[in-house]
Simulated scan of single mutants.
Amino acid sequence: MAGGCCGGCTDTPLPINKSWRRALLIALFLNASMFAVEAGAGVSVGSASLQADAIDFLGDSANYAISLSVAGMALRWRAGAAFLKGLTLFVAGIWVMANAGWMVMNSNHPPHPDAMGGIGLLVLAVNLACALILWTHRKGDANRRSVWICSRNDAIGNVAVVLAALGVFGTRSAWPDIAVAAILAMLGISGGVQIMRQSRVELTDNKSDISRHINV
Rank of each mutant, 00 (worst) to 15 (best):
Ala48Leu: 03
Arg144Trp: 02
Leu28Ser: 11
Ile133Ser: 01
Gly157Val: 09
Gly7Arg: 05
Asn31Ala: 04
Ala71Leu: 11
His137Met: 02
Glu38Thr: 14
Cys150Ile: 08
Cys150Gln: 13
Glu38Met: 05
Gly3Arg: 14
Ala179Lys: 00
Ile178Val: 10
Ile178Asn: 10
Arg78Ala: 02
Ala129Glu: 03
Ala41Leu: 04
Met103Cys: 09
His137Phe: 02
Leu30Ile: 08
Val159Pro: 06
Ile214Thr: 15
Asp56Ala: 15
Leu58Gln: 14
Gly93Lys: 03
Ile189Leu: 01
Val96Phe: 07
Gly86Phe: 06
Met196Lys: 07
Leu121Pro: 11
Gly157Met: 07
Ala185His: 03
Val162Gln: 02
Ala179Asn: 04
Asp205Leu: 09
Ala52Asn: 09
Ile149Thr: 05
Trp77Val: 14
Lys85Asp: 05
Phe90Gly: 01
Pro15Cys: 06
Gly46Phe: 05
Arg138Phe: 05
Asn17Trp: 12
Ala182Thr: 04
Ala39Tyr: 11
Asn127Cys: 02
Arg145Trp: 02
Ala182Met: 13
Asp60Pro: 12
Pro111Cys: 01
Asn143His: 10
Gly157Leu: 07
Val147Arg: 04
Ala54Ile: 05
Ala129Tyr: 06
Cys6Met: 15
Leu89Phe: 12
Ala48Trp: 00
Phe83Arg: 11
Ala54Cys: 02
Leu128Thr: 12
Met103Asn: 02
Trp95Phe: 15
Ala32Met: 06
Asn127Gln: 08
Ala79Val: 08
Leu184Asp: 04
Pro176Thr: 03
Trp95Lys: 15
Met186Val: 14
Asn127Tyr: 08
Gly42Arg: 08
Ser47His: 02
Asp114His: 06
Gly167Glu: 02
Asn106Asp: 12
Ala174His: 05
Asn143Ser: 13
Val45Ala: 04
Ala23Trp: 00
Phe29Ser: 09
Arg172Met: 13
Asp177His: 07
His112Gln: 15
His213Ser: 07
Ala164Asn: 03
Gly170Asn: 10
Thr10His: 00
Ala179Leu: 11
Ile26Arg: 00
Met1Phe: 13
Leu134Ser: 06
Arg200Cys: 12
Gly167Tyr: 04
Asn31Val: 04
Arg22Ala: 00
Ala125Asn: 08
Met103Gly: 07
Ala129Gln: 10
Asn108Gln: 15
Gly8Lys: 11
Asp114Pro: 11
Ser44Arg: 14
Thr171Arg: 07
Ile133Arg: 01
Ala129Val: 12
Phe35Lys: 01
Val43Ser: 13
Ile26Leu: 12
Trp20Gln: 07
